[in-house]
Design a protein around this nucleic acid. Structure first.
Lengths: 100, 100
DNA sequence: GAAATATTTCGTAATATTGCGAAATATTTA
DNA sequence: TAAATATTTCGCAATATTACGAAATATTTC
């Protein structure tokens, strides 16, 4: 018997949606999606937030699985993490298809 | 000159995503999507939350535009609001398509 | 080893979210 | 009008989010 409140899929959709739930994170993801990869320091110039705040948003996006960072001293190169990007796209896309 | 931090589209995507960012709201929307409409009182039986908490989530979903409620005394009948459901689907779907 | 560069972590504050039960509201029915 | 039914609002508490600047960390270069 399951004592879980929600299905794994419902939790995943909510988790991915939460990653998208702030406009600055949408902007960050759009920047990363528009090119192959990007250095954190270059991203901040286009954003209306402080570096330390960007760092927090990047870490949230990393936790969600939608991006990954590769240390390329002295910078960190961030990219979309394709396997999870695809999963989010399919799960959320599938969710919206449920309405007949 | 624009003093806006984010585009209207970025704000919209974030707003819709925020509505989807809690598993109980995913579950509510799945219930409403799976049938034509539903009475609030019937929804709560399937959910692991109190009635007053459901009321808050329904009001958030109403504010997001994804559902609408029609007073059908003494009950309220909730339905998916199709025009905004479609908009959310297109905006978020389009967002995920941005990654080449 | 010291300086320069890039990023994160810490400390703090303001605000938002989530949740509950009790009370309030609104409508229909007896 | 009183009772029954359905839902929301209120008051409260716990926790999470968002944001900033200062300090800490890590690596390379001088």
């Amino acid at each position: 018997m399951s004592n879980k409140k929600y299905t794994e899929e419902q939790e995943k959709i909510a988790r991915y949606a939460k990653a998208l739930s702030h406009p600055v994170r949408i902007q960050i993801l759009e920047i990363l999606a528009g090119q192959s990869c990007c250095y954190s320091g270059d991203i901040v110039d286009d954003l209306p937030i402080a570096r330390s705040t960007l760092s927090q948003h990047l870490s949230e996006l990393r936790d969600s699985g939608l991006i990954q960072g590769e240390f390329n001293p002295p910078k960190i190169k961030y990219c979309i993490r394709m396997e999870n990007w695809e999963e989010a796209k399919l799960l959320i896309g599938g969710f919206f298809e449920k309405k007949k």
